[in-house]
Design a protein around this nucleic acid. Structure first.
Lengths: 212, 212
DNA sequence: GCCCTGGGTGATTCCCGTTTAGTGTCAGGT
DNA sequence: ACCTGACACTAAACGGGAATCACCCAGGGC
């Protein structure tokens, strides 16, 4: 009988009730590819191949491509958030808290360049605002954690310029500036990252916050 | 009643010897669309339609899509460069020069958000390094113009921290940080741009440069 | 008249993300 | 033992991007 033509499926069909596991597998594969090849490189089909599944199958578990990658971004920000939460609970000076948070932020960016870009560089115009909501909210909580000590500093009258709000935004932005430039323009000849982080932190902290 | 179809323009063949003009027309149309709709929105076909020509025709004048948009970016940076050149020739204090250059830089970014992203945010991973060369070189010249006064300041022993190189990079990055964040995340509730620019400039200048 | 040439074209290719219309397998009710 | 329906998954196709191909065709020089 002509059963021989049967195309061997990608592999033996995956076990039964593990639909929920698949989600994790997809995320793991997607993260690996995304970290190695960035947003455009992390194709739906490539991810599906890596999982050993048809590209359409991804739509069983995620609404669209962006949801997969934003989930990765979400997990990354959660790390950052937990660092900030931990720092904000330590019994140290508010200025020192701010400094450490910014330091952690920059190191995080250098260690996860693609993820950082995805979340903080709006690297892809295609991701609509609503889709970003979950990640965006987490980012807000991260920023809240950071602006807590800033408000303390402002309340103590130690802000050299600006309000608690604008000072927090500017401090954050300065750190974002250096890491995003170094990440997206690696071909320019930058000073060593450690020096850049140091100079950024020193400069911006001394520039905005009075010593004492 | 039907709106007069604008289709026919294609029929009348454009005059002959104006191959060079076509290039300008394409750039003009592309710039309009790009400014309004960003990199992804500025489609080859849309641009071609706007010019009144088939999409293929664009490849007569440009190697690929990126060359068109990078040309736009190039022209924009030339503006920035000429501002910097003009400023660097004015007989004013080096610190004031730096301040005005950074101010001009940020205002330029706010006024040309899409172009700014194209050139400075590596907003599109797809544009390879070699393609960027022309624009990148212009960016370097811009930065050179900026780091001139910084070197003066460093030579005068007025740098609070870092070297002329790293200080220049950090100053630039701080300004890049605030504008790029505001541009790419317009939904966050930012302090007014003027305040952000002011605080950034004050903070970073005072933080890195001694008051003499 | 002829022919070359340069600006132009429609059809085609190759990816992309996403949609549609299924297929085979099982769990549970009857 | 049989249906039924949910589930996990699939092949095929769609529409829309960039880019390439093999052609056209009007003019100008000869």
């Amino acid at each position: 009988m002509t059963v021989a033509l049967k195309k061997p499926p990608r592999s033996a069909r995956k076990p039964k009730g593990d639909g929920h596991m698949r989600r994790g597998e997809i995320l793991a594969a997607a993260e690996k590819i995304f970290i190695a090849e960035g947003y455009a490189g992390a194709t739906i089909r490539k991810i599906a191949d890596a999982v050993g599944v048809s590209s359409t199958a991804l739509y069983m578990h995620f609404r669209d491509k962006d949801q997969i990658l934003l989930e990765i971004g979400k997990e990354a920000i959660e790390q950052l958030l937990s660092i900030n939460v931990a720092l904000s609970q330590e019994p140290i000076d508010a200025v020192e808290k701010v400094r450490r948070m910014l330091d952690a932020y920059m190191r995080f960016a250098f260690e996860n360049p693609n993820t950082y870009q995805l979340v903080f560089c709006g690297s892809n115009e295609a991701i609509s605002v609503e889709k970003q909501q979950a990640v965006s909210d987490l980012g807000d909580r991260c920023f809240d954690e950071f602006s807590g000590p800033i408000r303390e500093i402002a309340a103590a009258g130690r802000l050299k310029t600006g309000t608690a709000e604008s000072a927090a935004q500017v401090l954050w932005a300065a750190c974002h500036g250096i890491v995003s430039l170094v990440i997206t323009k690696p071909s320019r000849n930058w000073a060593p990252p450690e020096e850049l982080m140091q100079v950024t932190l020193d400069g911006v902290m001394h520039g905005l916050i009075a010593d004492r």
